[in-house]
Design a binder for these strands. Structure first.
Lengths: 218, 218, 218, 218
DNA sequence: AATGAATGAGTTTTCATTCAT
DNA sequence: CATGAATGAAAACTCATTCAT
């Protein structure tokens, strides 16, 4: 075939060469942005750094996100979705005890959120959310409200089943989730001084909470 | 602004006049800085705004703090001390039950930290701590480590006295303090959508925790 | 957009299909460019806007004009020709009085230049001419010099015929054309505050000028 | 005097040394801005160039004018005032003939506006005014309306005195001023090709206009 | 020929910090 | 000590132009 002999000739049709594909590029930008925002906070992050880390030119960034704020929003949007969906589905079809489900819940949270780069999203929300009402609203709707609903549902079913006797977690589901915030920020802030065994802490938490709610094997 | 003009102040007949009082001015600067940093974060805060709010000229700021970072450090330093000192002293001389002390503890935290402008210090640590290791270190030493020690001491004494049977809070005192994080950020982030009754939540938390730890009236 | 799809067009049975017609496309670009340059000036005009208004892609622009400057030059070139050609021909064959010709002249200028989108060309020359010597030169050659020649010719013939007695307009034909400048910019600048009746002004001008030149019916 | 012997001592009170004085600095900025805007138009002008030419730092510019637009406005504001004041006062107290006053008028305009750097203000208004309604409004109020009023007053008095018989200039005072626009832009645009004797043109204009208005020595 | 995604130089504007008064 | 005008480095964002498809 003559094509093969001419180095300037177009590559065979299916070459995977150049053409990073908008979807993949968007991902690359968001991954880069997460790193940079996590390292420097919103105001401290430099768009040029995001671009460089995504392997693109500064101007290209603005083809995908209209400005720095939109980039931050995109970050939260894209990260929020997958976290809860699985848990909600799991809970709906779960046959075992509430103890077992809580163990599953915290294991999932630990591996998928708290011990992944996603933990920075949580930190960014805590840190900067107050200055980005639109993002806080979105986060409330997509993550917080759904998360609290799930926790309430867990608690309600446990009460129904007679597994527990207290409705404290129905009234304040925030108490169940609180250690997750600690887990998300501890290492970055104080890991140098004292490590925190997330697995151990969550296990102790589940026990403490269930016993505190009046746990009784059914 | 010059407090020596206050006619109600008790001053020796005629003092040298004018004495802006370095101590008071430092306070004014730190108060202003807390507001501004809380509103805009470290990078977003403008020194000029801090100066204006403190009622002084921009240049004067630099007579009290060598630069922006030093100002931030001063902020955390000054806010950290008073919160824990009282609690430590209270605990040392406390005669009542652990239940009563925990109630006291969370009430103090609520009024002095979580529902005061100081709550922003917590948020600032979350936001900027990773970028200011020196401040994070200081905060760990002066607040976190001391706080966790106190919580461990509480738990140890309760075990000793036979009030509780679990050492979970000795191993993970973070579990006791976790809801404070939620409390510090909730209103600013999600208050628009759902209010959170801090007093109620902390009460439920104390009950939940103690019962979870095997509480038994002694 | 593809004019060969127009069913009313008279075309030989089946032509090769698709033929966006470079000539028409060039026109579309120039029309779009006039709008955009008029609105934002040379530096302020965005090539993308020109492309969008011309209904083509940004890159296509560069197939027709090598760069922004060439586009501006093309604009002035194409707009300059038709204005004067007709007047020169009219004058050559004009049988009536100088009064009548001047009336004709200003009517033509009014409808074809001053009250048409072309008036922006004049404004653009004023605005950018000093920065684009090549365009100013072209404009001088194709419009200004020809225009002044025509005015001098008019004046010379009127003197010859004994219609007027002064050679002022021979020496300073700019005086004849000056109100056109005012007419071209007035509405855009001050139309909000005071309208200017162009027809009336030009009529008054012709009268004033002729009388000033010593007009006498022949 | 001891001061004289210590080189570090403050200089004698009246030293003209350092301290450019806000008023003078504002002037320097506006002078620089006029040059730069004249050379490059509004959009094409670079703030850095203005600063450099004014002999100050880029940031200092923004202490005097909040942004580029404000700088342009300042330019027009400051240049507009002095042009007309003198003429209005001169006219009020003028005893001679209208012919003499018009000669005076155009001489003043020529030396003070058209043959001075201020001519660029006129060009900038013609060129960019349409994009700066606020400035165009100001210019209309402070220059155009006042100028047209003056021209009308001149014409009215001449009619009253029986010096002229036409009210054309009362209805269209723009006709009187039109050559000034040509004069303001000619040299920059076409000076290379053809010089324009402003003094001669204005003299011819005054004659032409007065004769055109029915001039008759009184 | 036509497209439009990508580039990166270039521009405005901000703000921590200094320093002459 | 106090001031605030001046500085200039730094950052967000734009847009003419190119070039792979």
């Amino acid at each position: 075939m003559p094509d093969d002999l001419d180095p300037t000739a177009k590559l065979p049709a299916h070459r995977p060469k150049k053409r990073p594909d908008a979807k993949a590029r968007r991902r690359a930008i968001l991954d880069a942005a997460l790193e940079v925002f996590a390292e420097h906070g919103f105001t401290g992050a430099r768009m040029e750094d995001v671009a460089r880390r995504a392997g693109i030119a500064k101007g290209t960034l603005y083809l995908y996100f209209k400005d720095k704020t939109a980039l931050f929003e995109g970050l939260v949007h894209d990260a929020a979705d997958p976290i809860l969906g699985k848990l909600e589905r799991d809970f709906a079809g779960f046959e075992g005890s509430t103890l077992d489900f809580l163990k599953l819940l915290f294991q999932h949270i630990r591996t998928e959120a708290v011990a992944s780069p996603r933990r920075h999203i949580i930190r960014l929300m805590l840190a900067e959310g107050e200055r980005f009402p639109a993002i806080a609203d979105f986060y409330y709707r997509e993550v917080v409200a759904r998360g609290l609903s799930l926790l309430r549902a867990i608690n309600a079913r446990a009460l129904e089943r007679g597994e527990i006797s207290s409705d404290a977690a129905l009234r304040y589901p925030q108490l169940i989730i609180a250690p997750v915030l600690i887990a998300a920020v501890w290492d970055g802030l104080f890991g140098r001084h004292e490590t925190l065994d997330l697995e151990g802490m969550f296990a102790a938490h589940v026990e403490l909470v269930l016993r505190g709610l009046g746990w009784r094997e059914v």
